[in-house]
Design a protein around this nucleic acid. Sequence first.
DNA 1: CTGAAAGCGCTTACAG
DNA 2: CTGAAAGCGCTTACAG
Lengths: 349, 349
Amino acid sequence: MENKKNTATVQIKQIAELLGVSSGTVSIVLNGRGDQMRISKTTQKRIQDMAKELKYQPNIYARRLRKSAEEEVPYIIALFWREEYLDDLLGQFLKGLYHMIQQNDLNIELVLQPYDFGNLEKYKSSINSNHFNGAIIGGISNDDQLFLEQNEFDIPIVLIGRDTKKYNSVNIDYYEAGESCANLFFVRNHKTVGLLGLSTKGKSVQLVELAFKETCMERNIHIDTNYISYCAQRDFISGYESAMKILSNEIKPTAIFVMDGRNAGGVLKACKMADLNVPKDIEILVFGDNEYFSYSDPTITTIQQPMVQFAERSLNMILVLIKNKVDIPMIQELTPIFNFRESCGGYTA
Amino acid sequence: MENKKNTATVQIKQIAELLGVSSGTVSIVLNGRGDQMRISKTTQKRIQDMAKELKYQPNIYARRLRKSAEEEVPYIIALFWREEYLDDLLGQFLKGLYHMIQQNDLNIELVLQPYDFGNLEKYKSSINSNHFNGAIIGGISNDDQLFLEQNEFDIPIVLIGRDTKKYNSVNIDYYEAGESCANLFFVRNHKTVGLLGLSTKGKSVQLVELAFKETCMERNIHIDTNYISYCAQRDFISGYESAMKILSNEIKPTAIFVMDGRNAGGVLKACKMADLNVPKDIEILVFGDNEYFSYSDPTITTIQQPMVQFAERSLNMILVLIKNKVDIPMIQELTPIFNFRESCGGYTA
DNA sequence: CTGAAAGCGCTTACAG
DNA sequence: CTGAAAGCGCTTACAG
């Protein structure tokens, strides 16, 4: 019972013992250097067969360690990414990382670990210096943040798109982003607007929402509860249904702020159903961009997080942190990007 | 000059020697167990300072090896993915992988390595059993395939979306896919059709194109060179310009086969410009799906590769191959998915 | 309070 | 044709 060995896996040594040869010989044969080292064909055959039978798997770590005097050891960086955002958003982020790695000829091994919203904790045992040199984490929930804050990690961690005290992060000012959306509606003279939110959301989205609502209040823009609807799913259907609720009010809003791009299609459909022309009767502003928004009909005005910049900055940051332990968290705040298109005009009414 | 040591990195041993303590002590302190092991504060401080000064980086491989008797060693699988496809396509694939890993509780470490089309060769030295247990490779060019075929690799490799003799692969029958697109146009009574291709393309896309053209010929569907245009970029603009060329013919085609979804938006725009109604005047069929196609106006009919299935099958395949060396390449051919929507009707005219 | 030794699994000179 | 030994960088009992 006190067996420390992981008996599930087979090692070269065991094959060697079973066959009565040395482990060096086994290693040579399994690496295909048997002929070169003039190991007898029969010995080679016996070794190959035994390895196959025992389903021998080389231990990559041992091999890499063996080589580490010859090969430069890469930085191993984990990218924890929320499952729901395994889409174009990740694509943009990865492009940013990749181009930066290329340009600066960095030696980085990127380990991608998706996780379910709120379940980051599951990977607790792997977020440490036995596994990675650093971790970039995107899309955490409040629970995930709590988990991070209640634990200590011995590697630098950079959070993407998250406002936090304890950790390094790259983000935008989410409150300000929400404010500027409300202000845009104000400048454009809207008196009654709708908000299409999300029922599952992290702190960043909450901040945008809060700021949007508060600023609407301040600006005397009507946004009663009737005009707020939350999507359970980030998809067309959910966007459609939620928008329909908002549009069922006697007095229609003249603008809607849609908090997730994936709901936008449904909102447009709902407007069409309600016989409202976008943007004449109703303006649509969306948080989160997508290439299709630039040529849909109408094209969609969006505000977006600068994913490529997020990637560049976070990679830079994590490398700095890996090389120099820094005590106070680094926080970089970037500027969100407005893409003014047909569905909602700019800051001139 | 004969120095085998990688002098670029610092080891615990060097810190220990410099400070005149043992490496065990250094290890303990750097792992934060100094107090627990009652190492004097001064020693701790000296060690911390020195480590910081020398920018000590622990060797992850050594650490993991040390732990490998306690922790199960994961399969390390590399995912080589073409830079151009770092988008929703990758997202779908990753979702497939992730769900499969979750469901079967697999212990897999996924290393993501983007590469530029035609430059897979750059990673030659890392595609081996010193680095990974297996590799999944998506989106290769003909040059990349040549590179793979002209070299031997000691780990199993599974190609995604590629028809090849030497390697394991998960794909669809690309020729048949192209055929069925042409047949769809035939059934729908089109006599003159356009083809919007790609100027950079791998063998799979070439096969689709070839099959489409050949089948059109057989079916007596006009598709002269005037009606074929290649996009240099996979984007809106390039799609628009190429479509405009096709539509500049005196006799307009009554259908266009668009070989990359990212060009589709431009094609729709071009049709609008040419005052052609989709689908009344001209039908559009697109290779490659996107969620927006299901609610654009008109919604877009597509044929797509089953990415989620690709992921599941390729992961399964690579695990089988890692565990049991198989001599003949495994090839799984899946069925492409047709999504019939407004822009082009189904097999009934 | 700290050192010396063993060992994780592997490969590679070296010796015979 | 093959074995025994050293060593990659690290951590952890054990000894003192």
